[in-house]
Every structure is written in C-alpha cells, then in structure tokens.
C-alpha cells in the first residue's frame, strides 16, 4: 500500500478565452521515505503537479491520496517550496522562516532554535534580523528552503529549490537536503532541470513531456547510487550511463515535438 498516490490526475486551466489541458492522466505512487524527481521541458506541468499534490489547487479529474485519504484533509502536512521564494518583504528573515509554525500555532523556543540551526546549516548566519530585500537571490532561496523544512512536514515538495544558487553552494545543499531527507525518512518530490541533480538525489526519475503534460518515461536509479552522497554519485561509474538515458528521453521527446 503506497503512502502518496496520484490516480489518473488530469488538470485543466480555464481562462475566458480558452482551456489548457496542463496534465493528462498522471498516475504514480510513492512509498513512505521515497524520494522522486520530475524533469521535463518548461511548461510540461511540473509545478502544476506539485500545486495539486500540496492540496492548494484542486485537480479537475482524478485523485490524490495521502495514507488513503484526499490530501486536502491534511492541511499543513505537505511542505511546499514554490518555484520562486515568495519571502514576505515586510517580515524579517527569522519571522519568514517561522511563518509555518506561526500558522500552525506551534511557535516555541525550541522551534526557533531549530530554525536558527537550519539557517546556519545552509550557510546563513547572522541574517535572521535582516529583511529579504537585503539578501541575494541565492540567499533568499535558501531561506525559503529552511522555511519549508522547519515545519517538519510528512511530505516535501521542492520546485527547483537550487536554481538560483552558485554551483558550489548547490552541491553542498544537495548533500545537506539529501542527508536530512534520508535521516528523517521523508517522502519527497523534487522538480529540477538538472539531470545530474535528479540522479544524485532521488530514487526514481519521471521524465515528462508537454502539451499535454504526461509522464513519458520512468527511470529507477540504481540501488548503489541511492544512499551515496550526491557529490560522490556524480563520480560513480553508473552515473554517466543513466545520465545519457535520461538525456535521450528528454531529447527524443523534443524531436518528436518538432516533427509533430
């Protein structure tokens, strides 16, 4: 029995002029503690999937179940880091990070301490009293990550969480997030454009195609790579072959689109 499952999820966006089928019959399921990634061209519906799984948006067809109940029955159980950071400009960094606990009425000295620890783990020390305006894009993204992690959700949805970071910081954070998720046995979905990131961090990779958004191919990451630190995965002998396969799947789809 799976922990999180999508059953034939279809989603339409309506405007007054037209309707877009953003997702077409998406089905997959995750066991507890499993970490999967979504890769695919821009506009294929990755963010749409996350919004639906988070329960913020209602799919037009199909079911999203967490522990066999609709996700909407668990407000706050699913942590969602949006594609842009959306830090509240009128709140200090620490108040931004403690927004989740505040909403869930769980603020305490302990959680504050945890927030400060997480901030320093992602390389942000002594910024807690600053305002988001005075931080760089990469720093803001890390604050948003901490804001999502601090509430300790059952499921984590990360929409391109490292896209604004320099390469070095990105590799370090991949290691950190990978460690945290494994340590606490979290279930998570990662959206990324970086194939290397998908291979090194997650257990399974869904390659998507656009118009309408579908899952084109699924890749299992070899068992040897799964528990390895992401940084070392990139040097593993099994890394490159998988990278090439995912790359081909992504490109094959584009060729199809051009000819179609």
């Amino acid at each position: 029995m799976s922990f999180l499952s999508l059953e034939n999820v279809t989603h339409h966006y309506f405007t007054k002029k037209n309707v877009t089928r953003a997702l077409d019959d998406i089905s997959f399921s995750l066991d507890e503690g499993e970490f999967v990634s979504l890769v695919g061209p821009s506009g294929c519906g990755k963010s749409t999937i996350l919004s639906i799984v988070s329960g913020i948006m209602q799919q037009t067809k199909g079911k999203v179940l967490l522990d066999n109940h609709p996700v909407r029955e668990f407000p706050g159980a699913i942590g969602y880091m949006l594609q842009q950071d959306y830090l509240f400009p009128w709140k200090t960094i620490i108040d931004n990070v403690l927004l989740g606990p505040k909403i869930q009425q769980k603020t305490s000295a302990d959680i504050r301490k945890k927030a400060l620890e997480l901030l320093s783990e992602v390389g942000l020390k002594n910024v807690e009293d600053d305002y988001p305006d005075s931080l760089s894009g990469g720093m803001r993204q890390r604050v948003a990550l901490v804001r999502t992690l601090v509430t300790d959700p059952k499921v984590l949805l990360l929409d391109e969480p490292f896209s604004a970071l320099d390469y070095q910081t990105k590799l370090n954070l991949e290691d950190l997030v990978h460690k945290l998720l494994r340590q606490y046995h979290k279930t998570a979905i990662l959206v990324t454009h970086d194939i290397g990131e998908a291979i090194s961090m997650t257990d399974r990779i869904f390659v998507m195609e656009a118009n309408p958004g579908r899952i084109a191919k699924t890749f299992e990451v070899p068992i040897e790579l799964r528990d390895e630190i992401p940084f070392l995965v990139r040097r593993h002998s099994k890394y490159q072959p998988l990278f090439d396969k995912v790359w081909a799947a992504l490109n094959g789809e584009e060729i199809q689109k051009n000819t179609g």
């Binding site: 988070s54 913020i56 407000p75 942590g79 969602y80 959306y86 989740g100 909403i103 869930q104």
Partner: peptide, 17 residues
Amino acid sequence: DPNYEKVLKSFGATKWQ
C-alpha cells in the same frame, strides 16, 4: 500576489490567517 497566499495555504492557513 496570490503566491503569498499559496505559501500560507501550504502551511494550512485559514482564510483569516
């Protein structure tokens, strides 16, 4: 920007929150 509300709703915020 509706995305601020999205962030809050992801934490389970009520309409009043």
